[in-house]
């Protein structure tokens, strides 16, 4: 079963107020984001619930959900570690950092550690190119990364 928490419900009320009457489907992305923040990923049950709220089918919710790369439809670790691999970061050695992090966490890109703490992902441009290489852990940007800084950031994830 999926249910929005009380805190989420309060947010939903605010979100729905942003859009005109009859256009509440605009809230689809924000609601998916809320569901993911709550559960860690988007469960089929969450899609059903969101569909009910916005008066669209669960299949429709899924079709939108899977279009966007930030939504996970499978469980991920408590911390999702993303490395930008696009050109500006590549010119600044992001591949070495990714490899370093893979070794450190003992997993390959796309995988989750057995303790479910970290998921490691490649990311397309994160729009912080002048501070490359860039890493994002959950919602937080970390810039001008070095192996030492990777160590520090990962150590701060508890």
């Amino acid at each position: 079963m999926f249910a929005f928490t009380e805190a989420s419900e309060a947010r939903i009320e605010k979100i729905l107020a942003k859009y005109p009457e009859g256009r509440k489907i605009s809230a689809l992305l924000p609601l998916l984001t809320l569901a993911q923040a709550q559960e860690g990923y988007i469960t089929p049950e969450a899609m059903v619930e969101i569909g009910k709220r916005l008066n669209v089918s669960p299949a429709y919710v899924e079709s939108v959900c899977t279009f966007y790369t930030m939504y996970y439809t499978k469980p991920v670790g408590k911390y999702v570690v993303k490395f930008c691999i696009n050109i500006s970061c590549h010119l600044n050695g992001c591949d070495n950092l990714l490899e370093y992090t893979e070794k450190k966490l003992g997993i390959k890109e796309g995988e989750t550690t057995p303790d479910k703490k970290f998921t490691l992902l490649k990311e397309e441009c994160l729009a912080a190119c002048c501070e490359a290489p860039v890493m994002q852990v959950n919602n937080k940007y970390h810039v001008n990364m070095t192996p030492e800084k990777v160590d520090q950031v990962l150590a701060s994830c508890r």
Binding site: K18, R23, I25, S26, A27, L28, L29, P30, L32, T33, L54, S63, V64, F67, Y68, T69, M70, Y71, E124, C125
Partner: peptide
């Protein structure tokens, strides 16, 4: 005035795709 967050799709920077996304469709 309101903020509206996307969810990871470069194409939504194209103006008509941005509007599709803002309306709750695939971008």
């Amino acid at each position: 005035m309101y903020t509206h967050m996307g969810a990871g799709a470069y194409i939504c920077g194209e103006e008509s795709a941005l509007l599709s996304s803002l309306e709750g469709y695939r971008g």
